[in-house]
């Protein structure tokens, strides 16, 4: 019982951390954005390194340091509350390239203890990584587990192995649908359309087709033993051919996903080892949570299965 509560709090806590942690950029991103758009304001955090000084053209200027230790003048239109005593700010701002100073648009709060990096092009939408990526991973894990028990069934002809294979395929289908839905909703806001035939979108679409075909095949065979054998064989064939997409897709389609082979703008999110440490920690914690959740769902299905067998008086 205790571990279920722990799991619940674990996932809830890391979801909260993932969603609530502010996104805050540095001077690097500010100047990068300024090259593309003079108007766009992004969230930044900085520590104050001096007293507010009134500016010649009105407003107030405070000397500040960003998280990388770079200095700049931060210009406020009105003097912020408790200006002398605060040690830092989280604020939306833009870089004024003519005055060579940062224009603070709106103060959001104190300097946050930890934050996620600002990634141009992703911004707040980067936070989907904590939910979408674990779902996509679980789809693949469930598929591999399903294939593993399929092989076990072919070796030992034990219908319990077949049951585990189906249970895992069912969960895989669930995670696959969730990953596809969250992904395409996100794609609408980030890439402009729900579906773009990006390599990973295509791969998950094919996995969805494989799961669909797997269950269609199962419902078309009546004898349990034959059903188990045929679906295990199909599972293995699919698992042997799906990886070809890894080689074929990049030739046909440019990747949109961060971390695609031809992607060099992904920056600090997922490029190997370059991901922000806090983000990586939250992501891996969520992955762990989802893995345990998957195990729990497998256990529940196992119990349900035994109850059904008992009612039909077929328990071994």
């Amino acid at each position: 019982m205790w571990w279920k509560l722990l799991l619940f709090f674990w996932i809830a806590a890391f979801s909260a951390v993932g969603l609530v942690t502010p996104i805050a950029g540095s001077l690097t991103e500010l100047s990068m954005i300024a090259q593309w758009s003079a108007e766009k304001a992004i969230p930044v955090k900085f520590r104050t390194a001096g007293e507010p000084v009134s500016a010649e053209d009105g407003g107030w200027v405070i000397r500040g340091t960003d998280k990388h230790g770079h200095d700049a003048d931060f210009h406020f239109s009105a003097i912020p509350e408790n200006a002398g005593t605060r040690d830092g700010y989280l604020a939306t701002a833009r870089y004024d390239t003519t005055a060579h100073r940062v224009e603070v648009v709106e103060v959001l709060g104190e300097y946050p203890g930890f934050s996620f990096p600002f990634i141009p092009g992703l911004e707040e939408r980067a936070k989907i990584i904590f939910f979408h990526v674990p779902m996509a991973w679980m789809t693949v894990v469930a598929f591999l587990v399903s294939m593993w028990f399929g092989i076990q069934y072919l070796r030992k002809k034990d219908l319990e192995d077949d049951f585990r294979s189906v249970a895992s395929a069912g969960l895989g289908l669930l995670f696959c649908v969730l990953a596809t839905t969250t992904g395409s909703l996100w794609a609408k806001f980030n890439w402009g359309s729900f579906w773009n035939w990006d390599p990973r979108q295509t791969s998950i679409f094919v996995l969805l087709l494989v799961y669909g075909a797997y269950f269609a095949l199962r419902s078309a065979v009546e004898i349990e033993e034959k059903k188990a054998t045929l679906s295990a064989v199909y599972n293995i064939i699919a698992a042997a051919t799906v990886p070809f997409f890894i080689f074929i897709m990049p030739r046909i389609m440019p990747g949109l996903h961060p971390g695609s082979a031809d992607d060099n703008s992904a920056g600090p999110v997922v490029s190997s080892g370059g991901m922000d440490a806090i983000m990586r920690f939250v992501l891996y914690s969520m992955l762990g949570g989802f893995l345990v959740l998957y195990g729990w769902l497998m256990r529940i299905q196992g119990r349900l299965h035994r109850i059904k067998l008992k009612r039909a008086e077929l328990a071994p």
Partner: peptide, 27 residues
Amino acid sequence: AIIAKANTKGTLFPVLSFPVILPLLMA
């Protein structure tokens, strides 16, 4: 060989074949 052992042979064939054959089609 698989669908020959199932009930709804005709409709099942393209359903099962497509995801398996797709990499070949694309290449």
